[in-house]
Every structure is written in structure tokens, then in C-alpha cells.
Design a protein around this nucleic acid. Structure first.
Lengths: 341, 341
DNA sequence: GTAGCGGATGTTGACGAGAACATCCGCGAG
DNA sequence: CTCGCGGATGTTCTCGTCAACATCCGCTAC
């Protein structure tokens, strides 16, 4: 794997450029930052010197001087869920538009000590603000304490009293899914929930229950998955024999995909025998068989608001509380239909 | 969205800690870095002062002094492809294990100027090494020039002469897929390729062609998609009427999923009438109907080698060339079967 | 003609941490 | 008893950049 070696070229400091261009470092600095009062001729000379030496400003020195890193940190457990990926991408793109970079800090596990370690590292990161893509339960722990001078935005959580929270409106989305199924004549709706460790999963499950109760319907036992399609398949295999199960609301699309295959394998037709609704509206949702009715999340908007909130804190120097919910949209496809007669 | 405001707590510098603990800043520094020759009693006093004031070391100052940021940059177009996401996650995890953070730099578009801008920003990033995840032949362009003192690892590209390249062994994977289908008795294999702008897509297409030619088979026209399931569906709809098409190798699993649904809609059974092979082995592959035969990529290993190569460069101070290919594995599921009689 | 203004440039210092070097002290060897 | 050594700690200086202030100059207004 190794072949040739090139000796490392030394990082060029401003002073070298200044010397070559015959000006002071301050003038180089001014050119570098587009300051107006530099003679065009001088500017060109400095640019030429920069190019010749391959000068690039040193981010550390700049940050030390200015106190700004122009970066936003994101703390998360995993990039293996659709929601996290899409949120991270959206944050990265919006941040990039503001000329901010994104620093990713993965947390090894959900163990208390790993989370604590990540939070502690937060403050030492070369970052102006932090987005926590962690579920709330973790922050409830009184021992987990976020330094007061760190600007934080929290996603997928409920700590709106102390922190800025941005999130998809899980409750409204879940409500719409249940309503849709009830309006098709189903007596009740089963729920394939995500893991208990997820705040989003818990919110969706709670609202599913509330919607059924407020409609005066029987509330079936919750079936739990772990977000994966495989867990959805297992849940589907367990639900298929139950003839009273004519409608299932899955907490995400991957698990819904597993459900669809499990029902197909068990000979239960979708949507004729069972209706299925997912959550997220991943790209593949439309390509499943049948195409999946699902709750569309606007991750782009979540990302935009995260960046906006983070930069607002950075610019004002203050931390604000409050919850900012992004609406969902029910996308009706072929996986839902009238209740069987 | 805004409610309460807390005044910003000032960042605590080392000097404050030193004063409170009754020592010099140097001693605080030593404690902070675990230097051995500090009296336990002094150490405790310093720790207490740190805790009381909420001291956290300043990353910029540390980086300026040491010349190290302990961060690796990743430049990429998008997180919407499975491959990129999984690679980024793997890199983040391995880097984190070495106590390095990850900085994400999205490139707005594939336009020449945006790529150039990103490359130029590279050198100014607060980063010790950079991974280019651009999946393209970008570096062929002579105008795109990477500063010689930037440590670079390239993924999904072909600049092994000048840079370290880590990649999945696309050719071997594609070859295995074609071989598998031919060994099942299919006269030839159609190919649903990814976009021309993707290096991986081109490698897979080239090897598909080579495998067919070396077996003396007819080489059908290539059908192109854009990685999405929707484009796979469109391609499937176009291929379905062609009775000579009994085997399709899709360049990724999402497009294969679209193919499966298109064939189902067109009344062509998989695998009885048509066999389908994908590439990637995404989680959902096993949940498709039928479960998808596909080429498994070991993204974790790609990430590990990227981090290893990047840190090797950082530590040696040199840049090395060479190509490091990660093997693939063909996962046979129900979507492939013997050629129809 | 000169005061005064403003544009172009230079000089100085500070950001926070930590390496190099200096200092001080106690203890053991000669 | 003194020298020297090494551990604990302090002092100084530097990293690269940029803001603040200083300087110098030409031009305009009176």
C-alpha cells in the first residue's frame, strides 16, 4: 500500500508571504480578509506571493484570535437510522451555506459513562455550538450537566425548558396516521413501536395510544421493534395470525417494510386484509410492494431550524429555551385501504 | 421559540484556575495533560479549581501550539447514498476510537467551481488530514490541485499514483455478480448502471462488460439509473417486455428494489422469469420481495483503513501513494435462480 | 501655505496553551 | 558539610493571526 514518499512541505506562515511581497504581516492579513483599504497593486503582489508559497491561513490561530471556529458540532449515537442521517445531512448543508463546517462526535454506546464522556468532550471541541441528536432520557440524568457557556440545540428530545429543542412534530404525525386508519373503518390500530430508548418512538407510541383512547377504541398491546426491517419482519410474523389485526401503524418505514414482507409470507394481503402505515417517508417507501402509506418528515426543515437556532445563540451569546416543532405530512399510497368487511 | 435568556458565562482561561489553586498556569497545564511530576495534593487542588470554575481547555490555543487539531475532514457531495453514509459512519467511529473528531464538508454541487472551492477550503480547515469521498474522476482535471502539505486519503476514486486510495474492490464484486448469474445458466446479464459521474458505477459497469466478454457472451445495452429506487423502477419497466432479459445486475440495492417492483407490476416473476442481483447489501435487501441477492460491501473495513492511512500520514509527516482494496462478498438470497428453460 | 482629513501601511500586543529553561528544595553520597 | 541530582514548580517565550493604534503621505479647503 505504500510506495513513494514526498517530504512534507512546511506550513507557510504569514510572515513568509509578507517578506516575499515586501509588506507587513498586517497587510497580508488585510488582503487575506478582503479589507478594502489595500492598494490593488499591493493586493496583487500579496496574492502572487501567497500563490507562490502556497500560503493558507491557519485555522487555529484565527480561531484563537477571533474566538470563533465557524463549526457546529453534532453529537449522536449512530448514522444507521434514516432520521439521523437525513438530519445530519440537512444540518451540514444549511451550515455550509452559512460557511460553517460540521464536526461529528459519535457516542460509542448508550451507557451513562460514554454519554458523559461525550458531553465533557463537547466543551473542548473546536466548535461554536452543538446539536445533540440524542434522546431525552439521557439528559434527564441529573449527573449529566451541560456547561452553561455551551450553545446547545437538542433534537429528538423534550428538554425545552432549559434548552432550544427542534424536532419533527411526532405527536401530530402519529395522530394523522391513526386517524387515517380509523377513517378507513378499521376498528382499531395496532402499533409496531421503536425501541424504548428512543424519545421519538415513545412520543409516537404515546400519541397512537391517545388517539385510540380519545376515539373510544380498544388499545391493543404494543409490539416492539428496534427500527430495523428484520425486527419488523419478526413483529409481522407475530401479528399475522391475529385476525383482529387489520391495521398496523409502524413507527418507521424500515420496520413497515419488514411487516409487508411478513404479511406477504403469511398470506395476508396488503391492503385488502391488513393496512400498514409507516413513518419517515424514506426514498424506498414508494418502491415497496405495495407502495407504503407513511408520515413524511421534513428533515431538511429540521436541519434548517437547528442551524438557525444554533447560530442565533452564537450571535446573541445567549441560550434560549423553547420547542420548535416541524409539521409532518401524511402520504397516502397503496398500503392502506378500507377495513375488510 | 424564545423564552428565557441566560447571560453567557465567560470562557474560563487557565490563569483563573491557576490563581484559584494558588499555582502557576504551567502547573495547571501539567495537570490538564496528566504530566507525572505534579504532587498529588497539588493536582487535587488544581482539579478542584477547574471543577469550581468550569474550566475547559481551549481547542484553538492547544492546536495553535501543538500544530494538531485531532480531527479528520471528510469532503463529500451527499449523505443520500448508502455507501457514503456507511463509510462516513465507519470513519467517524474508527477516528473516535483514536480520539479524533470528524469534520464534514459538503460540496454543494458537482460543478467544477464548487469542487475547486471545497479543495481550496480544505487547507484552511481545522483538520489534520482529509478524506475525499467524491466518487468521481475529479482529480483527473489538471486544474484541481491539492496542496502538497495536506494529508489526503481518497475513497471511491482512482488517483492511486499520487495519493493513498482506499476503496471497495468494485471490480471483483461486479465480477462475482456476473459469474453467479452465468453459472445459473443465463445466456447473458443485463446491467442497470449508476450515473456516469460516479467512479464506482463506472467500475462496476466496466467489469460487468469485461466479465461477459471474457465469457464470450453478448453484451446488452447498458441501462442507466441515478442510484434511486425510482430510477430502478423506470429501468425495470423498460426492461420487462424484453423476453431475452432473464438476468439483471443492478449497480446498487435501491435500484434493484425498483427493478423488483417493476417486474412484479409487469407480471414477470423473480426469480422464476428474471434473476436480479444488487450491490451494497443494505439492511433492507433481506426484506425485499423476494430477498435480494447482492454484493456485500464491508464499509466498516473501508472506514478503518481510511483512518489508518490518514493517521499514518499524519504521524509520518509524509504522503504515500497506492491503492488499498477491500474485498466484497456475494450474498445469495432468493432473487436469483436458474435461467428459465 | 498650511491645517486637517482620510487612505495606505506599519508596529505592538493579545488571544490560551505549553515547551524550554530556570529555580528551588530536600536528600544521599563523598 | 557540601556537592549534586532530580522532582516540583515558576518564568519566559512562541505558535499565527488580527485588532487597535501609530505613522506617513498626498490632497483639499480655507
Amino acid at each position: 500500500m505504500t510506495e513513494s514518499l514526498e517530504r512534507r512541505a512546511r506550513r507557510v506562515p504569514m510572515g513568509d508571504v509578507a517578506r516575499l511581497a515586501g509588506v507587513s504581516t498586517q497587510t497580508v492579513s488585510r488582503v487575506s480578509n478582503g479589507h478594502p483599504s489595500v492598494l490593488p497593486e499591493t493586493r496583487d503582489r500579496v496574492f502572487a506571493a501567497m500563490a507562490e508559497l502556497g500560503y493558507r491561513p491557519n485555522a487555529a490561530a484565527r480561531a484563537l484570535r477571533s474566538g470563533e471556529f465557524r463549526a457546529i458540532g453534532i453529537v449522536l449515537f449512530t448514522l444507521s437510522t434514516t432520521g439521523n442521517v437525513r438530519t445530519v445531512e440537512a444540518i451540514a448543508n444549511w451550515a455550509s451555506a452559512e460557511d460553517y463546517a460540521i464536526t461529528l462526535v459519535p457516542v460509542r454506546s448508550r451507557s451513562r459513562e460514554d454519554v458523559l464522556a461525550a458531553i465533557r468532550r463537547l466543551g473542548e471541541l473546536a466548535v461554536d455550538a452543538v446539536v445533540l441528536l440524542l434522546s431525552a432520557h439521557l439528559l434527564d440524568d441529573a449527573a449529566i450537566h451541560i456547561p452553561p457557556d455551551v450553545h446547545v440545540v437538542i433534537v429528538d428530545s423534550d428538554a425545552g425548558d432549559d434548552f432550544t429543542v427542534v424536532d419533527t412534530d411526532q405527536a401530530a404525525g402519529a395522530h394523522a396516521a391513526v386517524e387515517h386508519l380509523l377513517s378507513l373503518g378499521h376498528a382499531t390500530v395496532h402499533h409496531l413501536a421503536g425501541p424504548e430508548s428512543s424519545y421519538a418512538a415513545e412520543r409516537r407510541a404515546a400519541e397512537w395510544r391517545a388517539a385510540l383512547e380519545s376515539a373510544g377504541r380498544r388499545v391493543p398491546d404494543v409490539v416492539r421493534g428496534d427500527w430495523t426491517a428484520a425486527s419488523g419482519y419478526a413483529a409481522g410474523a407475530a401479528l399475522a395470525p391475529d385476525a383482529t389485526c387489520t391495521a398496523v401503524f409502524a413507527a418507521n418505514d424500515e420496520m413497515a417494510a419488514g411487516l409487508l414482507r411478513a404479511f406477504a409470507d403469511a398470506g395476508r394481503r396488503v391492503p385488502e386484509d391488513v393496512s400498514v402505515v409507516g413513518f419517515d417517508d424514506i426514498d424506498l417507501a414508494e418502491q415497496l410492494q405495495p407502495p407504503l402509506t407513511t408520515v413524511h418528515q421534513d428533515f431538511g426543515e429540521v436541519g434548517r431550524r437547528c442551524v438557525a437556532a444554533a447560530l442565533a445563540q452564537v450571535r446573541s451569546g445567549a441560550r434560549s429555551g423553547g420547542v420548535d416543532l416541524v409539521p409532518t405530512r401524511l402520504v397516502i399510497r397503496a398500503s392502506t385501504g378500507p377495513a375488510p368487511a
